[in-house]
Amino acid sequence: MLQNVIIGQYYPASSPLHRMDSRSKLIAAFFYLFIVFLANNWVTYGVLIAFTAVTISLSKVPFRFLYKGLKPILLLVVFTMLLHIFLTKEGDLLYKAGFLEIYEGGVIQGIFIALRLLLLVMMTSLLTLTTTPIDITDGLEHLLGPLKKWKLPVHEFALMMSISLRFIPTLLQETEKIMKAQMARGADFTSGPIKERAKAFVPLLVPLFVSSFKRAEELALAMEARGYRGGEGRTRLRALEWHQRDTFALILLALLTLSLFLLRN
């Protein structure tokens, strides 16, 4: 259980996608968010689906892992699809029962919206499935680097992220320990009405907060002792390396965009 939370969604494998620089993956995923909205007919959706399918197969991530990311939003997808099916009144009338009317345009619209959502979520999941959280943090820090000019605390943000990642397993272990200690004193975290259960977590949360503050204080001291004085003049061990495949991936994405422009209505 612990293992899952620590590495986030990351699925360790050696694929061209895993080997890509986190910066190019971030740029690509971000770009993809926009070009999905370019598709507006069967051909363009077809092109997008093909592109996404090829990317997924390249990543060597088994589909069930992607499905895990999709599960929480499936309900939303079905709901928006139905909403469009019932509310759009365009094209031929396909079915009528009482006040319920379903038009051809509505069905098509519903399918498109659902596809759009599924594609979006799959591609962003693919980013977190093929990139470790710490690499994503590094990539973000580099990409947002220029914002430092406008006094945005990019370095501090990235450090905060990496320290959070570092302490997640520690805090989980601690949570388990405190939970056991309170259970040994008769606390019950698993049964009872919702309101009672929320209250039952106070004996868990207060000690967690107290210890986290103590940790933060000690960590700050340890960092200072090791010469930490902000991002100024700092060098980095973790180096990002931009390869040909990264440039290639972005060119592919540009071609995809171009074709979407050409093929859309």
Binding site: I178, A181, G186, P203, P207
Partner: peptide, 19 residues
């Protein structure tokens, strides 16, 4: 529950459970 009442555990660093 009755088992837990019979056996009281003082965990390592028990002060961490105070709330």
């Amino acid at each position: 529950k009755s088992l837990r009442k019979k056996a009281g555990i003082v965990f390592q660093y028990p002060e961490h459970q105070l709330f």
